[in-house]
């Protein structure tokens, strides 16, 4: 095409944009690690004293301080911590007497599978609710869905969980109120015991995601190009799918990533209630026992997962945008 021959190929611009986003996410993660390290090191009192208790002698405390590296400057400790995190070995839990890596090990897998199943359920439900609401914007159905989702996003997870337990475990005795995950359990047993945690988590996440999806699509509905398409006689369903979705893809994907981050907060409560052996309940225990190395590691895993979600949504949105590809 005349006048465009000199331009660099489109993929170059896109890959440059993607590379920029990846770098920015990595920088953010680095800064997050600083924040978490600083916050966790501001422990009032002495971590070594904390581990040993009040009865310990000054020599014992000093020895442990040395072993924990607390007598070295903060910058050195941060550098060591960061490099050991990067090597996949985030230190030693003095409270549990185990390496943090072993503590996290299988629990991470459990949490990821809980989150994965919930995400799958939520995305499908939320897209459906969000699109149905947007297409029927202003109609009775939309207004009803609005009030329902609005109420659900304001529900504390523990309310939903306790109500579900009361109904399904206590009254109906259909599902267990404790999620047992073991090697011996059959698939069916695992599914049964995970049903309630997944349902509780999905409830809140779906409502949030559906609202954000609806908002992203509804924003586009007022654009002049939508009116133009209607005046061309294009049916509304087709307008939403073929005219609006390419434009709303970015915001919708972002909405999903943001809502999935609710999973992490939700998991803290849900895993604890159902005694689900995941990373979130481990983290709650780490706070109770003030196990800082474990807590830091858990926090970093969650932050990394969150940033990864946002990054993936960003990249997919870039790749889906024809204006950037063309």
């Amino acid at each position: 095409m005349p006048g465009q021959a000199a331009n660099p190929p489109a993929w170059l611009g896109v890959s440059r944009l993607v590379a920029k986003r990846v770098l920015s996410a990595l920088l953010t993660l680095l800064l997050v690690s600083v924040v978490i390290f600083v916050a966790a090191s501001l422990l009032p009192g002495d971590a070594a004293q904390e581990v040993l208790g009040q009865s310990a002698t000054a020599e014992q405390v000093a020895a442990l301080r040395h072993e924990m590296g607390l007598d070295r400057p903060a910058v050195t400790r941060y550098a060591d911590w960061l490099t050991s995190m990067l090597r996949g070995d985030p230190g030693w839990s003095y409270i549990a007497g185990m390496s943090v890596r072993d503590l996290i090990g299988t629990r991470l897998v459990n949490t990821l599978s809980l989150a994965g199943v919930t995400a799958l359920v939520s995305v499908v439900l939320a897209m459906t609710i969000g699109l149905v609401s947007a297409i029927n914007r202003g109609a009775r159905l939309d207004r009803a869905l609005n009030v329902v989702t609005l109420s659900l996003v304001a529900m504390p997870e523990f309310l939903i969980a306790t109500v579900f337990v009361l109904i399904f475990s206590v009254k109906l005795v259909w599902l267990p109120s404790i999620a047992m995950i073991s090697e011996e359990a059959t698939w069916g047993e695992t599914l049964r015991s995970c049903a309630l945690p997944v349902a509780c988590l999905a409830f809140v996440v779906t409502a949030q995601m559906a609202r954000l999806t609806r908002a992203a699509v509804a924003d586009e509905l007022d654009r002049p190009y939508v009116e133009m398409a209607r005046l061309k006689g294009v049916p509304l369903r087709r307008i939403v799918l073929f005219h609006i979705m390419p434009n709303a893809a970015g915001p919708v994907l972002n909405a999903m990533a943001l809502s999935l981050s609710y999973l992490m907060g939700g998991a803290l409560v849900i895993e604890t209630i159902f005694s689900y052996p995941g990373l979130a309940s481990l983290m709650v225990n780490a706070v109770t026992s003030r196990d800082m190395p474990l807590l830091q590691a858990c926090a970093m895993v969650f932050c990394a997962a969150y940033l990864a979600l946002i990054l993936i949504a960003d990249i997919v949105a870039i790749l889906a945008n024809p204006r950037l590809r063309a």
């Binding site: 654009r223 002049p224 190009y225 009116e227 133009m228 398409a229 073929f242 005219h243 390419p246 434009n247 945008n321 024809p322 204006r323």
Partner: peptide, 11 residues
């Protein structure tokens, strides 16, 4: 305004 009436994401 054609600039607004054309969908920016479609050819």
């Amino acid at each position: 305004s054609a600039a607004a009436a054309f969908n920016p994401s479609r050819t």
